[in-house]
């Protein structure tokens, strides 16, 4: 069980990296939080991808007319990720269990459900845990996609998502 202090630290660091972070304690709370996170209620609703393969993903309620199974076509990806690292405020996405790591990369908004018992305190804790047999792809995602290649002006959403929202559940 991850301590509250570690969860708190993770959320602070994620916000520092320009992600949004909330914590919920039930599926009902998760679904209450979602509409404001993905800004439902806009004129044309966003296309939402969700793998619906884990318990928590299955609990996510998405209006069927907005739901898509094709992440290439989606504006939003909602998925449960493998875990998180408090030290850096990163979420951990991996190919483990058949996950498509690129699903969180292509849409302009990535909504990551972080299992609260899988938050590592430090980078060392995480890499030690997988050093023997790492999954094919591990991606630590820290804030939105960004560049400063034009006159060092920070711009978000170059190739990856413009927005990263984290829901600790």
């Amino acid at each position: 069980m991850t301590s509250d202090a570690v969860i708190q630290r993770f959320m602070e660091m994620a916000v520092k990296a320009a992600a949004k972070a909330v914590r919920v304690n039930s599926a009902a709370r998760l679904n209450e939080a979602l509409p404001s996170i993905i800004q439902l209620g806009d004129k044309a609703g966003p296309r939402i991808f969700c793998p619906r393969s884990t318990e928590k993903e299955k609990a996510v309620i998405i209006p069927e007319d907005l739901f898509t199974t094709d992440y290439f076509d989606a504006d939003v990806c909602i998925e449960e990720v493998s875990g998180a690292i408090a030290e850096t405020g990163s979420i951990i996405c991996t190919s483990h269990g058949g996950k498509a790591v690129q699903a969180g990369l292509l849409p302009s908004h990535h909504v990551a459900i972080v299992p609260q018992d899988r938050i590592f305190e430090t980078l060392d804790d995480y890499f030690e845990s997988c050093r023997e047999a790492p999954p094919t792809n591990i991606t630590l995602e820290t804030g939105p996609s960004r560049t400063a290649d034009i006159e060092l002006t920070l711009t978000v959403g170059v190739h990856g998502p413009e927005r990263l929202s984290i829901i600790v559940f």
Partner: peptide, 17 residues
Amino acid sequence: ILSSYLSVITGTRKQGE
């Protein structure tokens, strides 16, 4: 503190991935 993305890639796509 960390770049937005850090990828660790270990070999090719495996069965079922």
